[in-house]
């Protein structure tokens, strides 16, 4: 059922219609923080040239997910959010991407009391209940809804990624952290690429060194501090020269399973990833950090979600 249909149904049910699409409806929100990581290569954080870009010779796939949400009615002061989440895996063969797996869900997110007021108008739809430990507040409820949606989308991506890995032996690059899932974190054929630097792994001089990583080099391997129980190995890689632009320009953080956490593996994978800079994913604003394969999955999903 489309949001408009749900809106009409709920309006007929006596709820107050709304048409607001929240600012951050398209992606996750992350708080800026520092979680100091443990360097596992050498005594201190260093820079390591990775060599020339090398084409990836093995089958390769990309996984990403998208979300879209809007408030359709209000039950009193409590918003009812209708969200659509989707994830897909696009596999590259002969330089051409094709979608091999995809899934999507429509979710109605609200306080249980608000869902109850909607009654049978939501029959057949998946619902996600928000905590009701405080009085309804349209803005705070919306923040809660967004977090719930992020979790739901993450779960969708994890499920799809695991399905893909069960079906073949190809490498899978995911947009974000592998530490979201213990199975991902242990998978020897998965790579997580974090282009958001809201959570930084160092502070002080190390942070400065980390952010000034030269083009074509990687940082020393480190073990990120994570809230999950899935340990991973990580390093930073500078895809494009940053000088004269921004410290974060072209900087990505790579995550792999510990089994791939050797310096040689990091160099090899980094060379592969340098080759993935082309084609550039412009006009995306993050094209300096966003691999084209990930961008292609996102474009595909957004085209499907419209």
């Amino acid at each position: 059922m489309l949001p408009d249909q749900i809106r009409r149904a709920l309006t007929l049910h006596g709820l107050t219609p709304a048409t607001w699409i929240p600012d951050a409806s398209g992606g996750r929100e992350v708080e800026a923080t520092i979680r100091v990581a443990r360097v596992v290569e050498g005594p201190a954080l260093g820079w390591h040239p990775v060599g020339l870009a090398t084409s990836w010779t093995e089958p390769l796939a990309f996984l990403d997910g998208v979300q879209r949400s809007e408030i359709v009615p209000y039950a009193g002061a409590a918003p009812i959010v209708v969200a659509r989440i989707a994830a897909a895996v696009r596999e590259r063969r002969d330089r051409t991407l094709s979608t091999v797996l995809e899934t999507s869900r429509t979710l109605v997110i609200a306080r249980p009391s608000a869902l109850a007021r909607a009654g049978e108008a939501l029959a057949g739809l998946d619902t996600l209940a928000l905590p009701e430990d405080h009085p309804p507040h349209p803005v705070r409820d919306l923040v809660d809804a967004r977090r719930a949606l992020d979790r739901a989308r993450g779960a969708l991506e994890i499920g799809l990624g695991e399905r893909y890995r069960e079906t073949g032996d190809g490498w899978l690059i995911v947009d974000g952290s592998l530490a979201e899932s213990p199975r991902w974190a242990a998978d020897p054929r998965m790579i997580g690429i974090a282009k958001s630097h809201a959570t930084l792994p160092f502070e002080g001089d190390d942070l400065e060194r980390y952010l000034r990583l030269p083009h074509g080099q990687r940082s020393s391997l480190f073990e990120p501090q994570t809230r999950s129980l899935a340990p991973v190995r990580s390093w930073a890689l500078r895809l494009w020269p940053w000088e004269g632009r921004d410290l974060l320009y072209g900087l990505v953080r790579i995550e792999v399973a510990p089994v791939n956490g050797s310096p040689d593996a990091a160099d090899r994978l980094s060379r592969f990833l340098l080759a993935e800079r082309a084609p550039v994913s412009a006009p995306d604003l993050c094209w300096d950090r966003l691999l084209y394969g990930i961008s292609a999955v996102e474009q595909y999903l957004r085209a499907r979600l419209v």
């Binding site: 590259r92 330089r95 991407l97 993935e276 084609p279 084209y292 394969g293 292609a296």
Partner: peptide, 10 residues
């Protein structure tokens, strides 16, 4: 003369 892009554009 650089090598072909690893992924063909849409």
């Amino acid at each position: 003369g650089a090598m072909d892009d690893p992924t063909r554009r849409a």
